[in-house]
């Protein structure tokens, strides 16, 4: 097990290295410079300012310089936020996105699993259809539509929640609900389909024959098997939730990382583009690793190290 994790960590480094390289060269193909007043400056003045930031050097030289810094854990200084280290931008902006992503993923998939379970147990009944309709609506209506409706109804009209901005926990409730619709719908659909299958399989019949209570059958034998496909999709979903949603962050005026990422691309803020991309990539590979380890936890048949041989 330990060796396996070490091996995986090594691959993770290679993956990150490749992502950093590809992103760097693709980013350098973006039109324009990071100068914010470039429409006002003469070519000569532009060249002088770019020189100061080392942007007149050939791209491979810039690449080596960046990677050199990266190895030492230096993500550089933002071009858009003057003199602000990229690590500080990431740390400041990651908090709200992580919190929202975490809350909505956990609550969303929890409710989704319950919905899916109920639908599977009472399949083809009214409850099943209701839950299916919720799931289909949830995965087909974009979250910014939900966000707009939630904001209008619960904040502007009813005044139960703050309209927008970022303060205490109450400011996170509406965005969390808007964001959790998708994981909820996804979880509900996966769990229902899988549980219907599982509950019809022979080992469930055996379990029932042994006289295990229905609750025991569903939760102990059924759910454990039904969770596997969900876990496969929950990984990438978790990453996309935690790296923030530009639209939701703009609607609720939340200082998150998703919005920052898009802004940095439009401003050609090279160090911040690299920093955010690498952070997202890092989260992704870490979560994939966690998911792979979770598989083994849930289903011993997929245990990674080949048992305890």
């Amino acid at each position: 097990m330990f060796r396996y994790i070490l091996q995986r960590l090594f691959y993770m480094l290679i993956t990150l290295f490749i992502i950093a390289t590809v992103t760097f060269f693709m980013m350098k193909m973006l039109p324009g410079s990071p100068l914010s007043a470039e429409d006002k400056l003469s070519e000569e003045q532009k060249a002088i300012v770019l020189e100061k930031y080392g942007l007149n050097d050939p791209v491979p030289v810039q690449y080596l310089r960046y990677m050199g810094g990266l190895v030492k854990g230096d993500l550089g200084v933002s071009f858009a936020f003057d003199n602000t280290p990229v690590t500080k931008i990431l740390m400041d902006r990651m908090g709200p996105s992580l919190q929202l992503g975490f809350q909505s993923l956990l609550i969303g998939s929890f409710i989704g699993i319950i919905l899916g379970l109920i639908a599977a147990v009472f399949r083809n009944g009214a409850i099943d259809y209701t839950s299916t309709i919720i799931a289909v609506l949830g995965s087909s209506i974009p979250n910014f539509v939900f966000a707009g409706i939630l904001q209008y109804v619960f904040a502007v009209r009813l005044e139960w929640f703050p309209v927008a901005l970022w303060g205490g926990f109450e400011y996170s409730i509406l965005p969390t609900i808007a964001l959790m619709i998708f994981p909820m719908a996804t979880a509900a659909r996966f769990i229902r389909t899988e549980m219907v299958d599982v509950l019809n399989s022979n080992f469930i019949l055996t379990a029932r024959a042994k006289g295990i209570s229905e609750v025991g059958v569903v939760f102990k034998h059924g759910l454990r098997n039904g969770l596997i496909p969900l876990i496969t999709v929950i990984g990438p979903m978790a990453v996309s939730m935690m790296t923030g949603s530009m639209v939701i962050e703009q609607i609720f005026a939340i200082p998150g990382i998703g919005e920052q990422f898009v802004t940095s691309v439009t401003l050609n803020d090279y160090p911040t583009i690299m920093g955010t991309t690498l952070l997202f990539a890092f989260l992704f590979v870490v979560i994939i690793l966690i998911i792979d380890l979770l598989y083994g936890l849930i289903d011993p048949r997929i245990r990674v190290s080949g048992g305890n041989s």
């Binding site: 809350q103 956990l106 929890f110 205490g168 409730i173």
Partner: peptide
């Protein structure tokens, strides 16, 4: 953890209007 978080979400939703005027 899931249920605790879910409970948090539900529980605190009753009082945020105190701070609505931030």
């Amino acid at each position: 953890i899931l249920s605790v978080l879910a409970a948090c979400g539900g529980g605190s939703s009753e009082k945020p209007s105190d701070n609505a005027g931030k």
